[in-house]
Amino acid sequence: MQERLKELQTEALEKISTAADLKELNDIRVSYLGKKGPITEVLKGMGKLSAEERPKMGALANEVRDRIAAGIEEKQKHLEEAAVQEKLAAEKIDVTLPGRPVKTGNHHPLTRIIEEIEDLFIGMGYTVAEGPEVEKDYYNFEALNLPKGHPARDMQDSFYITEDILLRTHTSPVQARTMEKHEGKGPVKIICPGKVYRRDNDDATHSHQFMQIEGLVVDENIRMTDLKGTLEIFAKKMFGDDREIRLRPSFFPFTEPSVEMDISCKICGGKGCSVCKGTGWIEILGAGMVHPNVLEMAGFDSKKYTGFAFGMGPERIAMLKYGVDDIRHFYTNDVRFLKQFSIHE
């Protein structure tokens, strides 16, 4: 009897180990541990045993039963795990296939430049002023010390609508308007971005419509050194800390003294190359101390107040910064062009 039990145990454990799936294992459980199973059968013959042997044999039978049950349980765990593994293996995907695209657009390179400049100056206490694109001759020229017949009006041949109304040729009228609103009281600290228009035939370097961004500071005791320091910060932020700047005397009717600002050429490091026409410098913007006539016309006492102003072309800055070679790209809106400005360095 004892042997028969051992035999059954060995036989069952062997079957368990070779069971291929959960169903087979369950069959094994039912056939060995069920009420009609062989162990029960064996125990039926216990009556023939002595009272001494009976509990021993009972204990042995339970032991065999437990071993088989444990064997089944262990095997079941194994099989279940294998089933999970198999399922996961079947679920494998190709992660190199393209993802479902999320639509993204991006802002125009000129907006990018303008907002970058706006933010820089906002950080320095400026507000953003805007004004009409169709202007009165007064604000576009006269209030900026360009009376009728002034030769510098030739410099910016304009689109007139009537004798006194034209498409603004620069964003400077916004300065005149803003100063006028301040009624002779400083400080004025503004940055003025916007579209401007000139009678130019569109080609690689000219556009009848383009952007400008200008800055103006009017207060007591504004010095030319303040202009220089401000422009230095601007140049380093826009073009890199390693850039040098230089101010060159120039002429604008609305500033006196007037200067142009150059930055050192990135391409050649100042040695001279084709980009900087051999000079080592690249012209970026015009600036100067606000002309006393401009201050006075806007209602400021030029004995008490001084100011500086500067102006530049976002197209030119974008062209220099990103190496764009044709100004028309900005207005054609070829998506192959626009797309390139979605990246943020």
Binding site: I122, G125, G186, I222, I233
Partner: peptide, 16 residues
């Protein structure tokens, strides 16, 4: 102008 110092406007500050 190379000999000019670089400064920033002083005086009343303005919120940007």
């Amino acid at each position: 102008y190379d000999n000019l110092a670089s400064t920033l406007p002083v005086g009343s500050s303005t919120p940007g």
